[in-house]
Nucleic acid binder design. Sequence first.
DNA 1: CCCGGAAATGGGAACGTTCCCATTTTAACA
DNA 2: TGTTAAAATGGGAACGTTCCCATTTCCGGG
Lengths: 335, 335
Amino acid sequence: MKRRPTIIDVAKKAGVSKTTVSRVITGDGANVREETIQRVQTAIDELGYTHNAVASSLRTDRTNLIMLSIPDITNPFWPAVARGVQDRMEREGYAVVFANSDWDAQREKMFLEMARRNRFDAILINPVRVNNDELKAAHIHTVLIGSHEGFPDFDIVGSNSYGATQLALAHLYDLGHRRIGLIRGERQSRPGHSRLQSYEDFLREKGLVLDSSLIVRVPFDEMGGRQAMEQLLSLAEPPTAVLAANDILAIGALQAAHQAGLTVPDQLSIMGIDDIFAASATTPPLTTIAKPQYEIGRQAAEFLLDRLGEQATAVPRRHLFNCTLQQRGSTGPPP
Amino acid sequence: MKRRPTIIDVAKKAGVSKTTVSRVITGDGANVREETIQRVQTAIDELGYTHNAVASSLRTDRTNLIMLSIPDITNPFWPAVARGVQDRMEREGYAVVFANSDWDAQREKMFLEMARRNRFDAILINPVRVNNDELKAAHIHTVLIGSHEGFPDFDIVGSNSYGATQLALAHLYDLGHRRIGLIRGERQSRPGHSRLQSYEDFLREKGLVLDSSLIVRVPFDEMGGRQAMEQLLSLAEPPTAVLAANDILAIGALQAAHQAGLTVPDQLSIMGIDDIFAASATTPPLTTIAKPQYEIGRQAAEFLLDRLGEQATAVPRRHLFNCTLQQRGSTGPPP
DNA sequence: CCCGGAAATGGGAACGTTCCCATTTTAACA
DNA sequence: TGTTAAAATGGGAACGTTCCCATTTCCGGG
């Protein structure tokens, strides 16, 4: 008899009904005598009983499982966010599990489908390709992470990426730079867009001319950053400062600059956005814009818990954290 | 009527039995007429039916969910491994989900318990604190990742970390270094141990004296690396080369060396192990030992699939990949 | 000592699926 | 056209839990 013991076995052993056992297990011990609890507990221990969450979920329609869907687990930005999510959700008895889509629309969809079929209680997602309507059609509690436009039906937590870009550009401008390159990522379409918008607005406000050759769009990884920088340096009139849409791109750019024999920041200033771990590891350490990653995760969890409670009808909320300048060594006055 | 449609609703609509619907859904269409399949399919579409994986799992005792439990999602080593796992497992219809214990024994245990209760089909784990017997007691298919000793009952996939250390030390030795520091991590006890062993063996073999002040043990993060390096530099007779147990420690060490005004590699050589992304981003880029991360993940998945098949009684296997030297700019002859 | 209400416990039914086994339909062949 | 085996379909039980509602037990006050 290899069968796993069930609550019925426990009930039999303890000489009570399965209902009583269930009450003990769920901690719904309100109406169970202390002595009975003990008896059940020992039966559980002796049999080595383990709760079957699947059966429980079937009956209750809750799994206590939350999915955190992100595009790129390689980007250290996310683990920091995840920590905030976990700390909050685990306290409420939820387990948080990662789904890494690797920028793959197919995979993102697959995970979404999985969360739905397996009745995950909710999803936290930084969407890659999926849109508002598809998410809505999934009929699962969802909170978005990232400063996305075009998702009117969902709670969103993110950072003010428009403001972050302004902050970065202002820093470079104040140092005296007037010819500033922008390295954008190809993939993360919407925030990239918002950064572009911000860039254009900034130039307009300061009365600088918009030179489209200063805007380069590349894949969202280190190699992309390198390529972009090489392209910028090959211009007849290269920029004196470069802002990359995230630190990974910036690090790639930094490497390319070194390789080209340029001294940073004396001959060229480089900035990133995010303030990931590696940003302080480069030489010179990268000036960047820090986002409150842990807090973002935490706030997203907070929204989610509201949704999981009774706030079902609440209107979609939006919380954008402000970003702060992390001034390090990769920026300085123009040559 | 807010209720989600079930196969019974579908069956009713299509004018067939629920059994037939089930056959269509599970793709077990062997014995279903093409026309019937079509009819069921349209009913499914019209009702917007979605399969309830929870109910299915209850009946079949399979969830097609795999947990990948790792200590530190911040360490870029793991995403690379994960990719190998995912690519292989998803092809077989499994979804891979991350559990990040953050070096926390409590959390690691929690996730293990969760995988068990929720009837995950298997676990891939790089154990932090959990031991052989606890894993065995969980009664769930498990494959270990990492070169751990003390887990006689499980398949293990990892890299030859003993060999990796030898390789690193040989590189430094060949460059002429005779006084080599070792930075160990505190947490990852067993492989750290194996590295220490390797270090001692190497010195013995080369007839070098073992100076215990050259061995520093610190927390497994960047700050740890810095501390360790500061400590080593404060010695009366500091080492001419330093090997760190992983790249993160090495990067911290590199920073500390810069801060102390040392030129790497002219005045001091530094090496890491793992070859994570950031290793090539430092200045100078880090010489390190590369592990075949993707392949490790892939092989682990392969072992797991065997277990999930019929190999239940197979004797535990062990696959250690060899590592290769990634020579970059952080090592050179001693001053 | 009995009564009444609260506390404790128990017995199905239900959750949505898959599997076993039985039954019906199909089609091939004599 | 009848026979038969194979193909297609259907009905109920089972998976292990929780919930509803009924029943029993307990205990203090009259």
